[in-house]
Amino acid sequence: MKHVLTICTFAMVAALAAGPTVKLDKYRGWGDNKLSFNEQMKVAGDKNYYDINLLQSKPDKKGNQKTFITLSAPSQKWNFGRAPSEFLFMKVNGISLNKIQPVPGSIKPWSKKDSAGAEFLLNFDGTKIIVNMFMKTGSPLLFLTFTQPEKQLVPIKGNFTINFNLVISRLLVNEKKITIWNNVYNRQAQTESRLLKQQHAALDLTAADKYLIFSDEKLDGSGKGDEKGVGPCLLAFDLADGITGKLLMRNAYSTHVTFTVPGTFKEFRCAILQHKAKISNDEFMKRFQADKNSYTVLK
């Protein structure tokens, strides 16, 4: 019995010590029967895990289809999991991500000793953007690296944009269970250098900001149940090489971050954090301060 226990413990430690794992799967959940394209990356590390989906809807009554990227794990409850449309959006050469055609094999998984993830190959009518999404040992973040192939069929003209969309902590509903779109929220975002409060106009981000810890003052993730939401989430980014960012955080249910990337770019790095379980604002900050590097270092 003792031997078995010892062996099991060693196995667990070995497993924990092993790097993140990745596999390809399909999204299964609400609306999956309405999809004509469905590929999913499942990546799991020692501190967290993510399911990221590349999906295309079946034609609606007017024949329109939509391509979109969603996050369905660790939690679909708010933050990046319950985005108004999709948590990650792009527009390249005037072509929206919603329009492009994913093809089988668009997601290519890979695995190394201390990291694992997948390349999402997104083709915008001949202009390819490669989004590498992965996890690293010791970090709860999902890292995203945007690159482009050396030779493009069609080069990027001017800039292109990358959007992150989220619903901070939760959205509120009235007594008839209808979403309250605005005027009841208290959104804020803590960066490395400042605390940003919700405002009507979009705000320019700087390289000094480095990250955004999104939270709501009142929907602070405390208590039992979802009354006060699920708490904060994080978006870390590296504004270098002429990449700019804007934060649109109104007194509204949804929040949007837009990065404008020059067509000549080599790489854009960012990362998100989505918790599985709810976490209060205070608890999040404690953990963040205790292990800041694992939340903010992108390289």
């Binding site: 492009i100 055609q101 093809v103 915008f124 009518d125 069929l153 069609v154």
Partner: peptide
């Protein structure tokens, strides 16, 4: 059926 005109580089 729907006949969708794919982008350059979309390969099946």
């Amino acid at each position: 059926g729907i006949f969708r005109f794919c982008g350059k580089g979309d390969s099946f």
